[in-house]
Amino acid sequence: MKVGFFVGCNTAFNRPDLEKAVRYVFPALGIELDNLEGQSCCPTWGTMPSIDLVGWCALGARNYAIAEEKGVDMITVCSTCHGSLARTAYRMQTSPEVRNKVNELLKEVGREFRGTARIRHAVRYLYKEVGPDEITKLLKHRLDGLTVAIQPGCLSLWPKEVFIDKEEDTFHPKVLRELCEALGVSAPHYKQLLECCGMGGMRSTDMEKSFRLVERKMTSMKKEINPDLIVTGCSSCLIQFDTSQEFLQKKGRIYFEIPVLHYMQVLAICLGAEPKMVTGLSRTPVDNIIKRILQG
C-alpha cells in the first residue's frame, strides 16, 4: 500500500515532530509514503479561498495533479488541508464551469486535474485501511488505565458531504475515540467535545476571543473527565491546546495543565518510536505522560 503525504504548512514548520511521527507510523503499519514532490499550501482559507474561487481551486487542483501523476491518494494530519482540498475536489466535480477554468490555468503549467486522486484524513485513513483491531495487535506499548480527552478537529468532520471517509453521524463522531480505545485508554464524552478549539482564522484575528474557546473546552474536560492526556486528530488543535495553556495559567484562567499530543504522535510512541523525535517540540510538558506510556 502506498499513499502521498500532504504535509502542509503548520506540520512542516511549526510541528515537524508531528511530521516525523507520521513518517514513523505509516511505514510501521506497512504503508509506504510518497513525498508528493513540489506540493504547495492547500491553500488555506485566509489566502486564495478568500480572494478568488477559481484561483483557490487551481492551487488545490495542482496538488491533486501531483498525486494523480503518481497514482496515489493523499493523506494529511491537518484538518484545514483536509477541508480545503476536499472542498476543491467537490467544487471541481460539481461545477463543470469551475473545472474548465481551473484546467485552463493548469494547462499553462503543464498540469491537469482528472479527479482520480483523493484527499484523506490520516486518522480516518488508518481507521478504514488498517482498523483498530489490527493496530492493537501491533502495539509495543499500551495506555491501559489512562483517560484521554479527544478533539477530532472541525474540518475532519464537517461538511460531511465533501469527505471520502466520513463519520456516520458527524455530531456523534466515533473514529478517533475507537482508535484511542485501541491503545487501551478510556475516552469518555465531555460536554464541549464537539466544540471548536479556536485556532485558525479566529486566533489570527483576535487571540483573546480565540482563547475563550480553548479555555471553555479545557475547563469542561477537566471538570467532567479529568483526562491524563488530550489527543487531537488535527495539527491546528494540537498547536492551540499546546501553546495556549501557559498563557491561560499566567492569567489565572486555568489552574491545571494537561499534556496534549496528536493521535499520530501517541501511536508512534506505542509502535516503538523514540519519544523525543516525535514529541520534542511540545511546549506544554509531556515527559510524565510519556513515562507512563513507556511503562505500559
Partner: peptide
C-alpha cells in the same frame, strides 16, 4: 529531528514554486 531542512514542497523545488506563482499571476 532527522528531517531534511526543507520539506519536499515548493520550498525544495523551484520549478514547482514557479508553477504556483504562474497560477496566482493569472488570477484577480
Amino acid at each position: 529531528l532527522g528531517l531534511p531542512e526543507k520539506p519536499p514542497t515548493t520550498l525544495s523545488f523551484s520549478n514547482a514554486l514557479r508553477e504556483v506563482q504562474a497560477i496566482m499571476r493569472k488570477t484577480v
